[in-house]
Design a protein around this nucleic acid. Structure first.
Length: 576
DNA sequence: GCCGTTTTCGGCCCGACTGTTTTCAGTCG
């Protein structure tokens, strides 16, 4: 898939056009096209082959031509031409908070600043304040912001964002300065990572609420502090213990505008633009304060009122990405998305028999306490040496322990499975006569990540066609911020899974989120069944199911399409 | 650059905040 490569180039073209001071609407077109390509479920190469590129919303004749050029020749001449005008580091300057295209242009053309290093040196020598529009304060802010550039590129894992959001809302509620408080933005849309956290609140005394927000534990810097908006940088430790920071915005709303603010700040941007356009056609004005006819507010206290004014059903936040959801809402065809309470169990759970930290019984008990009907134990197979993989004999030896547990309890079932390595040529790490003795089999890649696409695809297709394999685990093996996805023709894998009756996983480990929502939606469209699992290595990890379900909802999945939302009897049929 | 059931030309979201200004430009979301 070259969707992301093209998206990146379009996004860079937009940056370059901005710095050159070209028409901003042209730049916006490139940005919008880039976002569309990122969330496109189809392979853009297929669309080119079928002559359907210009059917992508936001892609017209000119951009369709550039996409076609890239797919057929590997180059976009217009991109190369623009790129040649810029020293390599100039676009990096845009990553500095407070520096936009206008300021970057001035720094580059008047001071010859072409990368972050020369910018830092110039600011330290107080050269910036000599330029019109720059002062002492800007210079100081730039020096601080340079330090944050690297960190700013690292987005926050969804699970960490959730802990931050929960911590802030609890503390603000306890402080009694807010009457109502809720997170919006990409967190509410359950994106796999979030860039910053948006918190909305209603407060009688705005100043007091703002002050309480600025004094939250972990606040290391106050970036803005107005009557309706306060922005801070907050320090936190991620789920693996590393110290990081994130920007948190607080917006203080009137109760009458609560729904409008929630809708507006939840986004996405493209979803909102489409709604506003619809409002305009009806002679209405839509913003973060409500929907207005002339000067009169006709909606805004609830999100439902905002949507119903446009004759739309309320759209779940996870679907608000301008991917066709508005048309469905207009015609009453929104899918009934899977919800956390629909989930009856978790197939991907490790114990201390391999690289988990707790015994089988402890993991079982933790799953039972979550209200599940079943848990699948899936420890590593022998070839996963770094994870302490079990031999076939060890894997089968636990059958008695599991039978005993199942005898004890009528309303809870332990399924004994394996996360079995896919070997070099697509063979399974255990022989078939071992696999068939287990209740289920997850097949996963833990080696040979760099195989060429064709070989890797053939390897995985062979694995999912094994009649004993039930679920393909973390299909792309990517780990956010560490390792990219393996080279894989996912379309072929989806087709093979759908045909073979093998489910495909959304692995909800915060670093994995694999499949991601776009891929999961493509899998759904290919007719695959999806299994949403946590890949837990400790009982505390079982809570990650919330984020796996969030990803499933972003993929428009219903409970009927999620394997572990089915009744146990139906699941047993599927595993047979 | 894109787009069209008021348009194939003329629109394209806009409000909050900061820091620089002497009344507002630039950035951000």
């Amino acid at each position: 898939m070259r969707n992301e490569e093209i998206a990146t180039r379009f996004s860079e073209i937009a940056d370059m056009l901005d710095i050159l001071g070209e028409d901003t609407f042209r730049s916006l077109s490139y940005q919008r096209a880039a976002r569309q390509l990122e969330s496109l479920t189809e392979n853009v190469e297929d669309l080119v082959r079928e002559g359907r590129v210009d059917q992508i919303p936001g892609i017209g004749r000119a951009l369709a031509e550039k996409i076609t050029e890239y797919v057929t020749t590997g180059r976009i001449p217009y991109y190369d031409e623009l790129r040649a005008k810029f020293p390599p580091g100039v676009l990096d300057l845009l990553k500095v908070r407070g520096l936009g295209p206008k300021k970057v242009k001035v720094l580059w053309q008047e001071l010859g600043i072409t990368d972050l290093d020369t910018l830092k040196a110039a600011a330290e020598k107080h050269l910036l304040r000599r330029v019109k529009g720059f002062g002492e304060k800007t210079e100081e802010n730039i020096l601080r912001a340079i330090e944050l550039v690297k960190e700013g590129e690292a987005r926050t894992f969804l699970a960490d964002a959730a802990r931050i959001v929960d911590g802030i809302t609890e503390r603000m509620k306890a402080g009694k300065t807010v009457e109502r408080i809720e997170a919006a933005g990409s967190f509410r849309r359950m994106r796999e990572t979030v860039g910053d956290v948006d918190i909305l609140a209603v407060a009688k005394d705005r100043a007091a609420a703002g002050a309480a927000f600025e004094r939250l534990p972990g606040v290391v810097e106050v970036l803005a502090s107005g009557e309706t908006k306060v922005v801070v940088r907050l320090e936190y430790h991620d789920y693996e213990g590393s110290r990081r920071t994130i920007q948190v915005d607080l917006r203080i709303l009137d109760p009458d505008s609560w729904g409008a603010g929630l809708q507006y700040f939840t986004g996405s941007k493209d979803h909102n633009i489409r709604l506003r356009t619809m409002a305009e056609r009806r002679g209405l004005k839509m913003n973060e304060y409500g929907v207005f006819r002339d000067e009169k507010r006709i909606a805004g206290d609830t999100e439902e009122s905002m949507y119903s004014t446009l004759e739309l059903a309320w759209i779940p936040p996870e679907m608000r990405e301008d991917q066709g959801e508005i048309d469905l809402a207009a015609t009453g065809r929104l899918p009934e998305l899977v919800e956390l309470p629909d989930i009856r169990g978790d197939f991907h759970v490790h114990t201390n028999a391999t690289d988990g930290t707790e015994p089988l019984e402890a993991m079982v008990e933790a799953a039972r306490r979550r209200g599940y009907a079943f848990v699948g134990i899936s420890d590593h197979s022998v070839s996963a040496t770094v994870a302490g993989g079990m031999t076939a004999e060890q894997a089968l030896s636990r059958r008695d322990r599991v039978r005993a547990l199942n005898r004890e309890s009528k309303d809870f079932t332990v399924l004994l499975g394996t996360e079995c390595d896919i070997l070099d040529g697509g063979e399974m790490d255990y022989p078939d006569d071992v696999l068939k003795e287990l209740d289920f089999v997850i097949a996963s890649v833990h080696s040979r990540f760099t195989l060429p696409e064709e070989t890797q695809t053939a390897r995985i297709v062979a694995a999912v066609q094994n009649p004993h394999v039930n679920i393909l685990g973390h299909p792309t093996t990517r780990q956010i911020g560490w390792r990219g996805p393996i080279q894989l023709d996912l379309d072929d894998v989806f087709k093979a899974c759908a045909k073979a009756g093998t489910a495909i996983e959304i692995d909800a480990d915060p670093r994995r989120m694999d499949l991601n929502s776009t891929q999961a939606r493509a899998a759904k469209n290919a007719g695959c069944t999806i299994s949403v699992d946590t890949d837990s290595h400790a009982s505390g990890n079982l809570v990650w199911m919330r984020f796996g379900v969030g990803t499933a909802r972003r993929a428009w999945l219903t409970a009927a399409e999620v394997l572990n939302a089915w009744p146990l009897e139906k699941i047993r049929d599927f595993l047979r």
